[in-house]
Amino acid sequence: MRRIASVNKKIQDGNQFVGRRFQLRVPPLDGLDGFPIQLCPPSGKVLDLSTNGRTGQQSIVWQSFSTTGFVSHSNESLDSLAVQIPFRGHFMQRMGSQELLAKEGVGLLSKVRPENQMYSSPDFIVLGCVFDNDPLSMAYGAMFDPSESLSPDFLQFADMHQLGLRALQRALVQVVFWEDAPGGQIDTMYPLMEELLIFQLIGCWPMANTISSKFETAPSHILMRATDYIDANLGRSLTVVEVAKAAGASVRTLQKLFRSRLGCSPVQYIIDQRLIRVHHDLVREGDVTPVSQIAYRWGFVHLSDFSRRFKAKFGKRPSDIVPRSAI
């Protein structure tokens, strides 16, 4: 996954940027040529803006800080939804004749359209994300009923003090500061994190339409098929949607079944099984194979995070498992 380059701009009126504007182009969102955002400072001011974030296959997540405030809008219509959560200050979104005000504790969800303009206050910090509609619709259908084509009908505003939405905020911040995998390693954890964001949004953001899952099979058969599929594919990127499809169940059914029968979520089960594989390989070959190489083999590319998870599960550091002859 690519990391959006940190942008720190102080743009003086009359410099090389015509009309006090500059283009901030974020890397492509799932095959789009680009995600162009046009920004300009408040009249008569120097624009001060810092943005940091990350792109994935299905999303862009960022955090922006501006001491001056700014006006922004997309240069083109995209089949995408934007979520913006102010941490400090406030902003007004103008959508045609409609004006929507969002401040601390209130999140705003809107379509990405050129006519939608955002006016931020000075001393402004915002956490934002853009999701393509296709994976949102696919995840919504997978959560409730894979046999039907469904689309979420999100409300514009959300109270970010609610427990589920606070968890969404924490996950978004974690993604903003998610480190790239070292040495060109494939990060098999990030697709799970990205999928988690989508399901958190679907599960927690208020909607005009709510439905319940009607896709059911014998629970024991679902669980067996799901765990067998996970165990057979632990060495590559794996998503909950993929596991649910293999098990013949909706994502919601799978989540409920894992929690009721195994006491954990499907994501946690996948991570735990990978940790068990690492533990097994450390005992078997830790004296000849570096710990980092074994961790990479099972999808752990961030060694500090891996060590923390390993000790939390087994009560020991990975190096404590290596045969004494290797120390």
Rank of each mutant, 00 (worst) to 15 (best):
H90A: 03
I85T: 04
D123K: 05
E115M: 04
G96H: 10
Y119W: 04
R113P: 07
P122A: 00
Q98R: 14
M118P: 07
L127V: 01
S110F: 10
K111Q: 15
R94D: 13
I125A: 07
S121H: 05
M95N: 13
Q117K: 09
I125M: 04
A102F: 05
Q93V: 14
D123V: 00
G128T: 01
R88L: 09
R88C: 11
F87P: 00
Q84F: 03
L101P: 01
L127R: 00
G89A: 04
N116Q: 06
L81I: 14
P86S: 04
F91I: 09
K111S: 15
L109G: 05
L78A: 12
P86A: 04
F91L: 04
G89Y: 08
Y119S: 03
P122N: 02
Q98M: 14
M95Q: 14
A102P: 02
Q93D: 12
L109W: 03
M95V: 10
F91M: 13
E104L: 13
S121I: 00
Q84Y: 09
L78C: 14
D123R: 12
G128I: 06
G105T: 08
V112I: 13
R88G: 07
Q93M: 14
I85P: 00
E104A: 06
E115H: 10
F124D: 05
L127W: 00
E99I: 11
V126F: 06
Q98W: 00
R113W: 10
Q98L: 12
V83M: 04
E99R: 13
L101M: 14
D79N: 15
P114H: 02
L109Y: 05
R88E: 10
V112E: 01
Y119P: 04
M95L: 14
L108P: 06
G128S: 12
Y119L: 10
L101W: 03
L109F: 01
Y119A: 03
V112A: 11
G107M: 02
F87T: 09
H90M: 08
M95R: 09
S120F: 08
L101V: 08
Q84C: 05
S121M: 02
E76I: 12
P122V: 02
A82G: 11
Q117T: 12
S97R: 14
R113C: 09
L101A: 10
L78T: 05
E99V: 13
Q93F: 07
G105Q: 04
S97Q: 15
S77C: 11
Q93W: 00
G107V: 08
S80F: 05
M92R: 06
S110I: 14
F124Y: 00
M95Y: 11
A102S: 11
A82T: 11
D79Q: 14
S80L: 06
Q98A: 11
L100F: 12
Q84E: 13
